[in-house]
Design a protein around this nucleic acid. Structure first.
Lengths: 352, 352
DNA sequence: TTGTATGCGTTATCAG
DNA sequence: CTGATAACGCATACAA
């Protein structure tokens, strides 16, 4: 019926805009905006009408337009080296759920594990104007993050109370922290192994550049000393099953007599167990006792049934979300901190 | 030095904008825009100057502003019921990497598995103006997706060639599809089990509402018939380890004599194996042979060493990215399709 | 409570 | 090759 029918543009209809709704409702487009912002004042019946028409038209406020003026993107960036490692995927899962509940969407960024974080990814991320950033990758320093990202205050997960962080040259940048106190859980683990007669301990590490690993190793050695136990052997690792398996084979080729192995993560512990059982003909826990770290879902599976130090995932995610929300409420507040405890989950890989 | 020093605003500096760069470079802001769009024509030395100044100022084009006018958000939505299930986390990992390489960021959305997809999530997603959407969740129909989302053409993963899709009432909406031909792999699995003497088969399903499961079960039964084998017992499942374990216990409480179990996914197969070995005192593969589906990384672990039907993750992700890019190049193109093959990976859970 | 005017940061269009 | 101008969709300040 139109004078100039445009065949090409007929196919994919443009999204309804606030003006469309306003026209149909007989109000101004500001009223439409207000209808979608609960705190704005608008006569109830008018709001209801607008919302009804909006629903019919399938109208939703455009986040890009909104972000431009409110300076809030409702986007939270998550930087991970590996989405597919069980612990991280479980954390991302919980985090996404929690953030979604608060109206934020999770933007996933992957760093290449083998390579130091390049600037390109950071400037790329910056363009999205993230409201917050959580760095699970440990090869990117908070300084770099703070400096190269705009409004977002990064959240850094660290594993010791004394504020040690990578590459900080008298850093003045503000960032929030989640501190995991892993000493309690590790002490419980060592106590249990000791009670079951372990004398020769080995520590299977994660990636050497990893802060979590460095601090875990430090805490483990410290506790060994406190308990009057000899220094543990240290095995090279990288948090993967394959490396853990290989390292364990190496260990028993050379140094014999190890009867207790503490792994920096659960997946590594699985590799240790499989090497012992299927390649070395040793029994777990009778011959060698094994403890892991994380308490991922797979640790409860009967084939492994792993005794492990648990970081409570729900607690951890709640703490992260608290940090994000508080920071958004007051962008200029001083650095904030949350602390998390760990505890031992006793299953079948330490016993007699 | 300024006449009206503003103490409050001094703390968090505003992001540099195109105008800032333009002023310092002595050009118009359009030139700055062009400097960041490779296809735009701009004298080389001028572009270099702008890029250099931009780098010094830490300027990056704002995606929100850009999206507003280009109508491209560079955001790809991924809908998943569980990020933490191994197969999905591995797929998300690969997909994020691939998309990042093409300049897209991955936006993660979680659906509650136990509940049908509610409209709120969809309208919420719509606000982000996604360039594309990949639905790994199967409780949301492509019609709903197409209708309630704006420009984005959804990609649907289906498991049969005949176009069967959930809730399609003569659907006219356009959506692209990735079809997984699982029959080849399943046939190889049954052939192998048959060769090792399996006579009484059981099928452990995934979630009953899952399309993948429905088609997997149909294919399995069809192949059984083709090979002159009796109808398999069907066990209820939901893709989880725990349910698989419980279902297997139930199975051997009642119906004895099952000597071959095919699980709709690998994690389920792990549950089956653990139930057989640790709770029922049966040997795998000597007493019962087990085959899984997916070939997740954990299937190679020695404790399970699972024979399984593999979907090639890299192929799958490449196909998805191809679909996205082609659709963006031509938004009005007719529905597109990619097909994927499956094949058996032989390990230790079928043998003698 | 409501509407008008303005600006957020960018690119498309068009004129030079 | 370059610059001025308008537009994208929205929320805020201000005036009514």
């Amino acid at each position: 019926m139109s004078e100039h029918p445009n065949i090409q543009e007929a196919k994919r209809p443009e999204r309804a805009t606030a003006d469309t709704v306003a026209k149909l409702a007989g109000v101004s487009r500001v009223a439409v905006s207000r209808a979608f912002n609960p705190h704005a004042s608008l006569k109830k019946e008018k709001r209801d009408l607008i919302l009804k028409i909006a629903k019919e038209l399938g109208y939703t406020p455009d986040m890009a337009g909104r972000a431009l003026v409110t300076r809030r993107s409702h986007l939270v960036g998550v930087i991970v080296p590996d989405v597919c490692s069980p612990w991280e995927s479980q954390e991302i899962d919980a985090l996404t759920t929690a953030l979604q509940g608060e109206g934020f969407a999770t933007l996933l960024f992957k760093t290449r594990t083998d390579q130091s974080m390049d600037e390109r990814l950071l400037t790329y991320m910056k363009g999205f104007n993230l409201d917050s950033i959580i760095a699970f990758a440990e090869n990117v320093s908070p300084d770099t993050l703070t400096h190269s990202l705009g409004r977002a205050v990064p959240i850094y997960v660290s594993y010791s109370e004394d504020g040690s962080l990578p590459n900080q040259p008298g850093s003045t940048s503000v960032f929030d922290r989640l501190i995991v106190d892993q000493k309690t859980g590790i002490d419980q683990a060592v106590a249990l192994m000791q009670a079951y007669g372990c004398r020769n301990f080995a520590y299977l590490g994660g990636t050497t550049t990893s802060l979590a690993n460095t601090e875990r190793e430090r805490a483990f050695k410290c506790i060994m000393k406190e308990r009057g136990l000899p220094d543990p052997l240290v095995l090279q690792g990288d948090y993967t099953y394959e490396t853990a398996l290989a390292s364990t084979l190496d260990l028993f080729k050379v140094g014999e007599g190890v009867d207790g192995i503490f792994s920096a993560n659960d997946v590594g512990a699985f590799g240790v167990i499989d090497a012992l059982r299927f390649q070395l003909g040793l029994r777990v826990p009778e011959d060698v006792k094994v403890v892991g770290f994380d308490d991922i879902a797979q640790s409860g599976w009967l084939s492994y049934n792993l005794t492990t130090v648990k970081i409570d995932l729900e607690d951890r995610v709640r703490a992260l979300v608290r940090l994000i929300l508080r920071r958004l409420k007051d962008p200029n507040a001083p650095a904030m901190t949350e602390t998390l405890q760990t505890r031992l989950i006793v299953r079948g890989t330490v016993g007699s």
